[in-house]
Amino acid sequence: MDLATVIGIVVAFALVFLSIVMGSGLGVFVDYPSIMIVMGGTLGATMINHPLKEVFSVFNVAKHCFFTKPWNSSEIIPMFIELANKARKEGILALESELGNIDDEFLAKGLQLAIDGIEPDSIREILETEVEYLEERHRTGGEIMNTMATFFPAMGMIGTLIGLVQMLQTMSDPSTIGPAMAVALLTTFYGAIGANLLCIPMAGKLRKRSKEETAIKEMIICGIMAIAGGDNPRIIEQKLLVFVPPNSRQSAFK
Results as ranks from 00 to 15, higher is better:
17 F>E: 08
68 T>Q: 14
63 K>A: 15
12 A>S: 14
236 I>H: 02
150 T>K: 06
166 Q>F: 02
184 A>P: 00
215 A>S: 12
91 G>L: 10
52 L>P: 04
51 P>F: 05
116 D>K: 04
124 R>D: 13
209 R>C: 10
145 M>S: 09
71 W>L: 12
187 T>I: 02
234 R>A: 06
73 S>Q: 09
248 S>A: 10
174 P>R: 08
245 P>V: 01
116 D>R: 11
76 I>L: 12
195 A>C: 05
13 F>A: 07
154 A>E: 01
166 Q>Y: 02
138 H>D: 08
152 F>L: 01
140 T>K: 08
238 Q>I: 08
146 N>M: 12
208 K>A: 07
125 E>P: 04
127 L>D: 13
250 Q>V: 13
205 K>P: 01
5 T>G: 15
95 L>A: 14
98 E>P: 07
164 L>E: 07
249 R>E: 07
208 K>Y: 09
40 G>C: 10
125 E>V: 03
59 F>W: 07
5 T>M: 09
137 R>L: 10
103 D>R: 07
7 I>F: 10
108 A>W: 00
245 P>F: 04
238 Q>G: 09
122 S>R: 11
128 E>T: 09
47 M>E: 05
89 K>M: 09
114 A>L: 12
207 R>W: 10
142 G>C: 11
187 T>C: 04
12 A>D: 04
78 P>E: 10
94 A>W: 07
71 W>Y: 15
12 A>E: 06
190 Y>C: 02
105 E>W: 00
213 E>F: 04
33 P>R: 07
21 V>F: 15
93 L>G: 07
